[in-house]
Design a protein around this nucleic acid. Structure first.
Lengths: 186, 186
DNA sequence: TTGCGATTAGAACGAACGTTCTATATACTT
DNA sequence: AAGTATATAGAACGTTCGTTCTAATCGCAA
């Protein structure tokens, strides 16, 4: 394991950067200054950075996943890759942390919208649905995921699958949450 | 903004916990000890924790997104929520950080597989594809995303859309990456 | 071997740290 | 209004921090 990897592991498990004293043990030195010089190198290489207060701070580390471009364009060369964006999926997908939850999808009623059984959906509670949103709603005591439709005089739910019929709620329609993202892992 | 939120923000932007001196400014005190007592409370409430070395460490903070259950089951009560899993999307979706990248999807050739234009796909390079994998491949100088098919004597690519035809590569088939996940944001 | 640059050990320094103490101010109850 | 608990200010403490210095050690080329 390289020094940088050790430090990264330290940061990710302990959620803070090691002191030079700890680095001394971590990197296998018997003097703080040795660790100090080793870190100096890593900073020069860009693997670690420093605050303006002088405190160590992780640099690239957990910097999410590099975003390359469009499928059809193919893979850029190694040199180009550096220029492109990188993002953490959490930041990208979750806007309102407090109100966001995940649900497993069952059934194929939203298949034509690209939401299959087994997918995970991120949902946000406490928002008022707009026409066209995909929502989690309670109709007559049961929960379903459907398109939310609204015209001048009524509100109904529409599946994204021709084999199912729209639902016109008899009593009230309780929208529990709005689907904000879909995630599928292979 | 509550004190805890301020500290959280500090940690997430600066990637380290503030010192008591910094907390003093952050929370609007004029003495370190006031900040000290304030933090003591937060620790008792569980919002912050301490190392065994005495250093401050974030506690619950970035604890991903709570996973609730299945769509049809609806929303559990507040009490139940605590019992269920919570996960960061990055950890869940990315297995091999080094080799994983993201691509924007263009076109509708994988529509029936639930991958639509505009989606993001996570791809992993350097893995050998299996029959049935969704891959990014270079065929005759162009990049496409298709199902990877393999029989005893040949290898070909198959779209997930009846309007397109399978591709039987004339020369060699270069698989650049395997699609490991799909992500869609509304 | 000799010489030279890079690396490490170990000690030393002031600065910043976390903690604790006392004194003052504030809020709330009786 | 008086009394009591709580919260804050400010100073002080020993400890640890990051940094720097010198000396010893290593690796390698001449």
């Amino acid at each position: 394991m390289t020094p940088l990897q050790k430090i990264r592991e330290f940061y990710e498990t302990k959620r803070r950067m090691p002191s030079y004293q700890e680095l001394m043990g971590l990197l296998g030195y018997r003097s703080k200054s040795a660790a100090h010089y080793a870190v100096k190198k890593l900073i020069a290489e860009g693997g670690i950075a420093k605050d303006k207060t002088g405190k160590l701070v992780p640099a690239k580390f957990d910097a999410g996943v590099p975003l390359l471009g469009v499928v059809e364009a193919g893979f850029p060369s190694a040199a180009e890759e550096e220029l492109l964006d990188t993002m953490t999926l959490d930041e990208y997908l979750v806007t309102n942390k407090q109100a966001t939850f995940m649900l497993h999808v069952k059934g194929d009623s939203m298949m034509d919208a690209g939401i299959m059984a087994g997918d995970l959906v991120l949902v946000e509670r406490g928002r008022t649905p707009k026409h066209g949103d995909i929502v989690i709603a309670e109709v007559d005591g049961e929960y379903t995921m459907k398109y939310y439709r609204k015209s001048r005089e009524k509100v109904w739910l529409e599946p994204a699958n021709k084999r199912y019929k729209p639902i016109y709620p008899t009593a009230e329609l309780k929208v529990e949450a709005i689907v904000t993202a879909v995630v599928r892992k292979y």
